[in-house]
Simulated assay, not measured.
Amino acid sequence: MADAGKVAVVTGAGTGIGRAVALTLHNAGYRVAVAGRRKDPLEETLAMAKATEDTMLIAPTDVADPLDVRALFKSVNQSFGRLDVLFNNAGVGAPAVPMEELTVEQWRKVVDINLSGVFYCCQEAIQLMKSQDPKGGRIINNGSISAHTPRPFTAPYTATKHAISGLTKSIALDGREHNIACSQIDIGNAATEMTEAFAKGVLQADGQKRPEARMDVQHVADAVLFMANLPLDANVLSMTIKATTMPYEGRG
C-alpha cells in the first residue's frame, strides 16, 4: 500500500494504459489526478475507481500546451498539497506512411505531445517536488519498445520515444540532489484499444502483415505501481515489459 497521503498525476488517464495505471494507483491508496484532453473519459475513470473528489481529481489537460500543464500542477498542489509520483503516459502516433509523405503538422503534433508535453510536465513536477516538505518524488515516463526498435513507418513516434530515453536519464542525473528519481517503462503490446488491430495483423519489417500477441494491460499497471512504491533511495531506471512472443528480440 502507498503511504498515507501519497499523490500521483497520470496523463492520458482517460483510456488504455493511463486509465489502468490510475485505477491501480488509486486502489493502492494514492490520491490521483487524472489528466487528459477529453473530460468525459476522465469522468469514466473516476466512476470506475468509485472515487470521490478527495481521492481523485479530474483535470482536463492538453499536455502540448504549457499553460494547461501549469494549471494542472497548480490544481494538484491546491487540492492535494504535494506530488509524489508523475506518470507521463499521454502520447500519439502519426499515419503509418513513408516519412517523406508526412506533413509538418503531423510531425509537430507527435513531437508536441510525446516529447514537449513530457518536458512541460516534468518541469512543473520538479518545481513542485523541490519546494515541498519533505521534498522529492518520482517521475515515470512511458517509453515504448520503439524507444529501442522501430516499427515500419513510425519515424515521428520512434524519434520522440528515443528522446524520452535521453530525457529520463538527464532527469535521473539532475534530480539526485533534490531526491527526485526518474524511470522509464517500455511497453510492448498491452491489450488496449490502441492495439486491438495487432491481433488481426500489423505491418512487419519484411513488408508482411502478421498477428501479434498482446498481454493484459494490468501487468503494466502493476509494474508501474511497483516502480512508484520504491523508496526514493532505489530506482528502476529502465524496465521493459512486453507480450512474451511479440516480435522484438530479433525483430525484422
Rank of each mutant, 00 (worst) to 15 (best):
D186P: 01
P211E: 00
V202R: 11
S183K: 10
A221V: 14
D112I: 10
I171K: 01
G175Q: 11
A205S: 04
P152H: 05
N179M: 09
L115E: 03
G201Q: 04
A147T: 11
T158F: 11
R210C: 01
D174T: 09
A172R: 00
P156V: 13
S146H: 14
M129H: 02
Q132W: 13
V220H: 00
F153L: 02
G137V: 02
G166S: 03
K200R: 10
R210F: 01
G201A: 06
S170G: 12
Q127N: 13
A147K: 09
I113T: 09
P156D: 15
H178Q: 14
V118W: 06
F119D: 00
A159P: 07
N189E: 04
A159M: 15
D133F: 09
A181W: 04
L128F: 03
N179Y: 13
P211D: 09
D216R: 03
S183V: 12
K200G: 08
A199Y: 06
H148S: 11
G166D: 04
K200V: 07
A221W: 15
D133S: 12
N141I: 01
A159S: 15
P156W: 13
Q218P: 00
D216L: 03
V110D: 06
K109L: 11
T158V: 14
A172H: 04
T158K: 12
Q123I: 05
H219I: 05
L173S: 06
A172G: 05
V110A: 08
A172P: 01
T160N: 13
T192Y: 07
I187F: 00
D216Q: 09
E177G: 13
M215R: 08
G166A: 08
D186T: 05
S131A: 15
R151S: 00
Y120N: 08
N114K: 07
G188E: 06
A159V: 14
L167C: 04
S116N: 13
R210V: 02
A181F: 00
L203H: 07
Q127D: 12
H162G: 12
E177P: 12
H178A: 13
E212M: 08
Q218D: 06
G188T: 01
D112Q: 08
S144P: 12
L173V: 12
A163V: 15
I187T: 01
V110I: 07
V202E: 11
R151V: 01
I139C: 07
T160Q: 14
C122L: 05
K200S: 13
E212S: 07
D174H: 08
N179H: 14
S165F: 15
S170F: 11
C182L: 03
R214V: 09
I126Y: 12
P150I: 04
G207H: 03
R210E: 07
